[in-house]
Design a protein around this nucleic acid. Sequence first.
DNA 1: ATACAGATCGGT
DNA 2: CCGATCTGTATA
Length: 212
Amino acid sequence: MKKLERSFYNRTAIEVAKGLLGKYLVHRVNGRELSGKIVETEAYMGPDDKAAHSCSNRRTKRTEVMFGPPGYAYVYLIYGMYSCMNIVASEVESPQAVLIRALEPVKGLEDMAKARYHKSLADCTKKELLGLTNGPGKLCRAMGITNRDSGEDLCRNRIFLLEGGMEPEFEMVTTTRINIDYAEEAIHFPYRFYINGNRYVSVRDRNYPFSG
DNA sequence: ATACAGATCGGT
DNA sequence: CCGATCTGTATA
């Protein structure tokens, strides 16, 4: 499988968010390789998007990476305990990013189970297996990605993305984003995308898909 | 120096 | 629904 190159990320966050569905996120750590298929994403469009950390071009040490070139990781800590991973999109000085909201685990499930539940894969219930990576905080925990990984170049070989190869067809659902109640008109922007029917799409889906 | 909110999660 | 838990950020 081929690694996604810089040009893939040099598009709007909406395009990148859609394009990332079905691709593979890979983390090489401790001599092992963890990976999962991306099944759910959200686009954060920057200056005019009140849900984005980079709204109004708000530029701080934390958000700085989003103002740089595309294809880098923006990882932040939320509620003091979970990391969320984003992929910087668009060109320099256009602070857009794509939040990875859910993965279907592919490789390194044993390590993921350890990281999430402190027990081996064999001891996990069916529910726990489905809960391994079906949320932005959960997948970072499972994949061993933390805010210290913010700024990582995804075109190198520690954390990177792979093209799917011969992907089976899937239907993409477009809907609204999760947990951005404060974002005024941006609450209604259709910036969330997921693979229809995939069992690893985050369960806290209180939104109604757009028809069309 | 201090205050406070948060692109979440798991348990009730 | 609620609380955990702590960093980044704003304000002074």
